[in-house]
């Protein structure tokens, strides 16, 4: 996305709740291509609160992915495998 001209953007959003819902569906991959196209082109680049909100949501998601994924301890993985094989043998 190109950086829009901030000076020309609206400082307030009239439909912040609806906008946040569409924005959320876009980020979650649940919006239709038309909804996405319409919102990104017709609204996001003209609306400062929504533009900021979109980038904030994306940044939070990246941070979550980078910081909140714990891997299973290897001994545990092995022990589960072993238990299942024992189970099979019964």
């Amino acid at each position: 996305m190109n950086s829009p001209d901030f000076s020309k953007m609206k400082k307030d959003c009239q439909n912040q709740r609806e906008c946040f819902e569409i924005l959320q569906s876009i980020i979650d991959g649940e919006a239709t291509p038309q909804q996405k196209e319409h919102f990104m082109k017709e609204h996001l680049e003209q609306c400062m609160p929504c533009y900021k909100s979109y980038h904030l949501e994306v940044a939070i998601r990246e941070l979550l992915k980078a910081k909140c994924s714990q891997h299973a301890p290897q001994e545990l993985v092995e022990s589960i495998r072993k238990k299942v094989i024992e189970n099979l043998a019964q």
Partner: peptide, 27 residues
């Protein structure tokens, strides 16, 4: 298994409980 462990850990907020929950679930 890694995603499942992470889910178990975030639900229980305890690594011992997470291990038990993960093992129970897989069995």
């Amino acid at each position: 298994i890694n995603s499942m462990y992470n889910f178990a850990y975030r639900l229980t907020l305890d690594s011992d409980d997470a291990k038990d929950l993960l093992q129970d679930t897989y069995l």
